[in-house]
Amino acid sequence: MSELSEHLRALPLRILPPQLLAARGRLLGGRGSGYLIERHARAYRHAWLILVSGFFEPLFYLLSIGIGIGVLVGKVTGPGGHLVGFTSFVAPALLATSSMNGAVFDSTLNVFFRLKYAKLYDAALATPMRSGDVALGEIGWALIRGGLYAVAFMVVMLAMGLVHSAWAVFAIPTALLIGFAFAGAGMAATTFIRSWLDFEFVTLATLPMFLFSTTFYPLSVYPRPIQYVVDCTPLYQGIALLRGLTLGYVGPGLLWHVLYLAIMGMAGLAIAGRRISRLLLR
């Protein structure tokens, strides 16, 4: 009887062309990604402190730089040449940076550990899970975690009167988009990392972006050529988006930033899935 049901269950697999079935999910990742997210949620129940601490980092930055230095600086030139308070100027940039840092941390250090040491994906890939599920699950988890921080940070911004426009309702999805872009890129990069030393390259990419992508002052302070360089960095896209939304200076130009980040995330996801197959399914 159970054998019969076994055969019935296998039936659709024989009727559909196998190439089609093999292609589905290898590219996208499917339901399996949810199981990996479920796994992470359980694992973090035992390590909830790590979850909580992630919220405080951008908050401390906001209090120290935004408010402390803000008193000294006063107003700066915001989007479209409008003068805005320094704290209101810096806060969305800190949200963008924290979305980047959270996603990069999750998708590089954590993924590397799971890939090379915990053998988490080796175990998962012995089950019906696919490499695409693993890549999507990891990025999904990074987004859930980043989303929680973004909500908390937005609440603080609201309470401090740093939100100046109704467009700010799009700030959370935007923070998620930034997280998606960096988690995808970070995970793809991680599949090329050979040892812990290589993480210096990650820091080498993220720290200057944090410091120089108009986080603390407008793009106009740079000479022209440098403006072009900054204009091309991924974090700048995120900062420009969030700043526009929370300050209320929104135009169709912002859609370029959205496109940039979406392509970055999807390319990263595709590369990561493929590379995990190559690394683990040898």
Binding site: L13, L21, A47, L120, A123, A126, R130
Partner: peptide, 27 residues
């Protein structure tokens, strides 16, 4: 079934005890 094309369908019906433990130490 063909392991290259039907990997997940086959793996659903296998039990694997690998040489190195791959237990989840965070759980």
């Amino acid at each position: 079934l063909n392991p290259v094309l039907d990997g997940p369908a086959i793996r659903a019906r296998l039990g694997v005890c690998p040489q190195d433990d791959t237990l989840d130490v965070e759980l």
